[in-house]
Every structure is written in structure tokens, then in C-alpha cells.
Design a protein around this nucleic acid. Sequence first.
DNA 1: GTTCAATTTTTACAGGCGTAAAATATCTAC
DNA 2: GTAGATATTTTACGCCTGTAAAAATTGAAC
Lengths: 341, 341
Amino acid sequence: MATHRVKTMMELAKVSGISRPTLSKYFNDPSSVRVSMRQKIQTAVEKYDYRPNIFAINQNRKLTKTIGIVVPYSSDPFFAEMVRMIERRCIDAGFWPIVFSAHGQQELENYALATLQSLRPAGALIAPLGKGSDFESVERFTKDVPTIVFDSNVAVGQGFVGSNNRQSIGLIVNYLCRTGEPPCFFEMAPVNPNANKRRDAYVKTMEELGHEPMVVQVSGSGWGFEEIGLTEGNRLIAERSLPSETILCSNDRLAVGLIAAAYQNGIQVGFKEGCSLRIAGHDDHPWSQFTCPPLTTVAQDYHAIAEHSVELLFDIISAKAPAKERTEVLFEGTLVMRESA
Amino acid sequence: MATHRVKTMMELAKVSGISRPTLSKYFNDPSSVRVSMRQKIQTAVEKYDYRPNIFAINQNRKLTKTIGIVVPYSSDPFFAEMVRMIERRCIDAGFWPIVFSAHGQQELENYALATLQSLRPAGALIAPLGKGSDFESVERFTKDVPTIVFDSNVAVGQGFVGSNNRQSIGLIVNYLCRTGEPPCFFEMAPVNPNANKRRDAYVKTMEELGHEPMVVQVSGSGWGFEEIGLTEGNRLIAERSLPSETILCSNDRLAVGLIAAAYQNGIQVGFKEGCSLRIAGHDDHPWSQFTCPPLTTVAQDYHAIAEHSVELLFDIISAKAPAKERTEVLFEGTLVMRESA
DNA sequence: GTTCAATTTTTACAGGCGTAAAATATCTAC
DNA sequence: GTAGATATTTTACGCCTGTAAAAATTGAAC
């Protein structure tokens, strides 16, 4: 340990008595050298605290070990959780995950894609902004980099993994109709394909059940969903213009804002005695269990989506030829009954 | 645009009639070539969609343009917001921010630091896990990379930027004592120096005001603060063992859980008629305004901390010699009066 | 001890760009 | 138009590792 640190593979070869190409082979894939050799190398690496130079490595490799992850909004708990799971899987598989967030802005999404592209990643997992994306930029990126799209099904890349909104919305609409007044649907102008699919699923399910769909679309843009839920909820309550006393929100974050609005107007939320409003969400965000009352919602299968996205990407990367067809995998939601509806 | 894309600087030199060294100079610093030349180059770059190869660039540069950002928990809204601001400043200054999250785990923090280090960044902004950090790993990192520490004042790096907990806690303790029963302090086993400083500040302030400090330390570890606040809050309420009906939480996330616990036990929170518990937090997390009731807290100056951290780092990077002394900058908190206390 | 296969070593070149030094071209001011 | 300062081109080498091909070594089984 007191030994002077070694900075290049050449030096390591000299001090360890092992040829440089063998060292190179080892760093590419430790199992490609004999066990005895492997141990000698590991000892030397530790003794001289050597680490390969990433830049030199990637300059000649056709395939880097970098995996790009791009999300629209890293502080959204759904994406935060997805990123955590995806990162873990990549690291365990010997890849280098690098995370970018668009922070809701097209400009930053483009920047992230451009940066990532110049890193020549082995592949990428992206959740596009959706409506806010510069479609051509995203498409250009996917031409160069094997890409799996998740969450928001923008029609690019080699595959998509997400939730079955038709099924999950159907589930909660059924539940709400079964247990009380049919819900209206609370949404803002859709920011991505998911939002559209959810609204359509709501309308379809209501019609199937013989009820009149009631969509309440409020104004507001950006990713500050709670804020929109709060201010628009306050407005709707003041105007008494809610078409139903049961409200299904397009996502949990909107519901968080709406619950706050109800509270601030002295309205009790829930299905118990004395409650005059039922509020439900969609996603089962990590903090949905901490609302007052706890939020009834539909859980997306975070784990399955993350896991499957990564598997799909690895399949594509390891396959020589690009997939002939874009695959789409949808996971089903599960009802999470709490107290808000 | 229909032109074939050019992949190396050499090719770009050929097709544009400009020498490679001049192009190289341009990419290092566009202002180092004549205006006429600059325009010719920009035109060619766009026409042939050329982008320099990052790996080749960084292999020879002593100083890369990479800035590393390491946070303990990317989905914590405080860090999410900090990251957003820091990234923006770095991009605007022509640097490449790369974000890593330890997801609360020492192993991942070490991995992030090691990865980052091999990227030979120009500098780094890190918020260490704190108690959960492998101090030696962090210190070793800071020996190699100019580093500014923020949020959690672990004694490494060239400087620290954070909040003045003594002042901010003093502010809210004063407020709470002035307006009602003196608060007890609700915390979990401290995960970082901030938590310790806040508790100490609470104790000091209470003593100054002539009150007996009452610290309620609950068990629970990890970064699931809301969960801890909820379960431990439920327990304390059931046991009737809260020493005061005014509770100052070590941070907002704990308060979110505690408010949920109060709600679930039918306890009204706030200072109005009929309320029997006052709850306050610290940080002014983005979602604190959506709790029921809205959370009274102390706001950290996110913007100042982010801005100043970056400035400090840039100063160090541009200065030839490393700073002789580790600088510490603290920003003051401001009281945010809402309805929970 | 021999043989064959699997490893490792030797040798050599490539990758894309930074950068230094000397020669040449361009611009500005007079 | 000319000198002097400033930019650009030419030429050449270095950075650190990947990788290919041929030669040499090692290992296990007989």
C-alpha cells in the first residue's frame, strides 16, 4: 500500500510482470484469464491502486459500458424510484449508469440526449417528456443508440415498457362506481401519452358501466402538479362546479394538491360518515400513503417496469442485429384501497 | 444537411478547408479564433453534424469540463431542487454536470465517487451521506478532485456551503415559544451533521429562553423519514408520551409523517380553535405547502446555497493554487408561517 | 517424456484529439 | 505599400488503451 501509485496499464505490466494485453483482457472481462493470473492481477491492482483510464478505454472500444438513463423530472418520486432500481440493475450487470433529468424542459432534454450521445453509450433507457419533447431530437438519438422507452410511450426506440392504463384505470373506475357515486376525471392538459390514455380509459370504462363520463380539464402547465391540483381545486370548490363528489385524478400528485384544497375549504375527504368528497389517484407514489387521509389509488408495478426495461435493453445490446420489431410490454396496476375513496 | 456526417476532426478539417489545430483551438475556446474563422467553423459543424469525441478530448486535456454532483438521495425534494439549480449553472458556464445519487447507501456513494474520480472531473459538488459515509473514501476523493461540500458539513474538501442551523432553529423555536407552549424536538438518530447541529441549536435556544429542552429521539434508520414520522408518531400518540403539544421536527419530511399520524388518530393540528397539536418542520421542502394543514417551517435558502457552492467551486478551479484554507459559508433561514403551528 | 490445446507474451498498429514549434499568411495601423 | 502583431497552417509527437497476429509458454492427460 505504501507503494507508489501506478497510473498506466503499461506501468502496471512492468511492476507486476504481466503483459499489457493480458491486463487489458482482464479488465475487459476478468473471467477471460486463468484463475491464477486473475489473482495475481487483482493483488497487483490493489497494491498499486491502479484504475484504468476511462477515456482511453472507451476511445477504442466499439461498445462502451455506459448506459444512459434519461427522465423528465428526477424529483418526481415515480422517476426517482425507477432510476434507483434501474441504476442498481445496471451496476450489478457491470455497466455504468449515467442519469440525466430534463427537469421538465425540452432544452434540457435535448442537452441530455446530445451529451449522452457523445458518450457513445451501449444503450439508453429513456422516459421522454412526451408532449414537451423535441420529437426529432429524440428520434435522431434513438437512431444512434439502442434505446428502450419507458413510462411515456413516444413512438421511438427498440421497445417500450410501461403500465396498462386501460386496465388500471378500469380497475379504479369500477371500484369507485361499485362503492359510491360514479367519479368525474380530474386532469390538466395532458403532458404525455399516458395522460391521454388514462382519460380515454376513463371515458371508455364509464360508458361500459352505463355512466356519463365527466372530464374536468383544468388549465396549468409544467410539472408542478400539486400546485395545479391545489389552485384549481380551490377554484372548482369555490365555484361549486365539480360534476361529482367522487374525483379520480389523472395521477397522485394532482390528488395531493386536490386533497390539500379540500382540507383548506373545510371539506372532509373519504368514504366515512361526515365526508363529502371522495378523491382517488393513480400511480401509488411513495408519498401517497402520507396524505390526510391516505390516498386510495392504483399502484403501477414499479419493480416490474424497471426490471423488464433493463432486461429488454440488455437483450438488444447483446444481440448482434437490432430487433426487427418494436416490442411493447405493459404491466397491470393493482388497486390500493386506503381512506380517501 | 443532406451531406454525409463527419465523425472526426480530421475529416472536418478536410471538408471545411480549415486546419485541424485551429479546429481544436476553436472547440477548446471559440473566442480564441477570429470571428470570420469562427463563423466558417460553426457553419461547417452544423452542415456536417460534427461533434467532438469526448473520450479523445479528455484523454489529453489536463483539465476536463466535467463537474461531478453527488447527493445522498436524489428523490429527496431538497436535493432534487439543489441538483436542478447546480446543473443549470454548470451548463451555462460551459461545463458538463454529471449527477450521482447514493440512494442512501454507503456502497453506492463509494461507487459514485470512484466512477466520478475516474472521469477526472474539473471539480465536484458533493453532499455526503454523513454518518453513513465511508469517511476515508470521501477524503481520498477530495484529495484528487477539487471539491465543495454542501448541506452536510463533513470535514473534507476545499469548502462548505450550507444553512446556519443555529440561526434557523433559533428562529422557529423563538416563534413557537412566543406563540404557545414551548416545543419538544422530534428527531431520529442523526444521519448527518445537520441533524446534530439542529438538535444542539434547539437545546441551546430553549435554555436561552429559560425552558427545559425536551428531545424525543425515535428509532428508525435510513432515508424513509415520512415513514418513521408516521409509525413513531402513531406510537407516541398511543402511548401519550409526547412531552409537549408543540412539536418541532428535525426536518419537514419527518413532519409530513407526523402530521399523517396525527390525522389518523383524529387529532387536529394547528393553532386554531379545536386544535390540540402544533407541528413545525425545517427546510421548507417543496411539498410542505401541501400537507393538511400546510406546514409551518423554516426555509433554507436553496438558491443561495446552490449558487454559492458553484461559484466557490469555479473560483477554486480557475485559481492555479488550491485554497490555503477551507472556507465555510452559511446562509440564514427564514420563517415560513403556515397553519400547522 | 510427449502431445495437443489453451494461455500468455511479443510486436505492432490504431483511435481521435491536445499541443508544441516553426513557417506562412492575414490583418491593422501608419 | 510596409512593418509589426496576430492568426493560421504544417509537421510531428504524445496520451492510454484496444486489438490483431504470430511466437512462446504453460497445463493436463496420456
